[in-house]
Design a protein around this nucleic acid. Structure first.
Lengths: 111, 111
DNA sequence: CGCTATACCTAGCGTCCATATGTATAGCCC
DNA sequence: GGGCTATACATATGGACGCTAGGTATAGCG
């Protein structure tokens, strides 16, 4: 039953950091951004997103601040840090490298 | 160690099935094939490989048979089944779709 | 006043892969 | 014949990760 395609395991940090590299957003907005940019292919579940945002704050990759949202509700806005940008760069490079390697196997280079 | 880059989580089944779609191989040979085709970028650990082969046999995606290897040792050779090929097709399509979606987010289509 | 969309949070669970370890044999070199 | 490496299989343990399922709360709308 696993064939609804959620995000690729291991790429959630990457997607979130990339989203925050564009601007300051709250959690709900991050999920929407990823959903929209992926043309509805990727859905970030809230039960995955909020814990990951907390982990990233603990690691110093993002900072957060409560603010009023455009819809007049309190929301926690996240901002990426310098360390977060370094992490983003490393994860992005690694992702492309791993995808390329996997693709080589799938193409069956030899034969 | 020089190429310390694990496989993308969730792609191990896919890599193994793809490898077996080319021919009958034993576990050790599967790991070597993936390592070589990926140009040493991907290393399949034995502690990951053997359990996954057992799981795939339980699911009916592969069958196995003890045989003599070219080096005169007993080895368990794996053969992909029709169900395994269907699974391979589904996982391969899903992988490409997910990578494309993730790449769209990373390219940051909007500003 | 109920409904929907927005917004955040946590507990619990299953899946997945790596680490570490153990077993065993073939072939080679000295 | 003793040691070494490569080949070959197996499991136990543990951590990381993301999803399911639930809960809380408010703004805006009809």
């Amino acid at each position: 039953m696993a064939d609804r395609s959620p995000i690729l395991p291991g790429t959630l940090d990457l997607l979130v950091l990339k989203t925050l590299s564009v601007g300051v957003l709250h959690g709900y907005g991050i999920a929407q951004h990823i959903h929209r940019l992926s043309r509805e292919a990727l859905s970030v579940e809230e039960g995955s997103l909020y814990p990951v945002l907390q982990r990233m704050e603990t690691k110093g990759w993002v900072t957060s601040e409560w603010k009023q949202s455009p819809t007049n509700r309190q929301a926690r806005y996240y901002r990426i840090t310098a360390a977060g940008r370094r992490q983003l760069g490393a994860e992005e490079a690694n992702f492309h490298k791993s995808v390329a390697a996997t693709t080589r196997v799938l193409r069956g280079a030899e034969s």
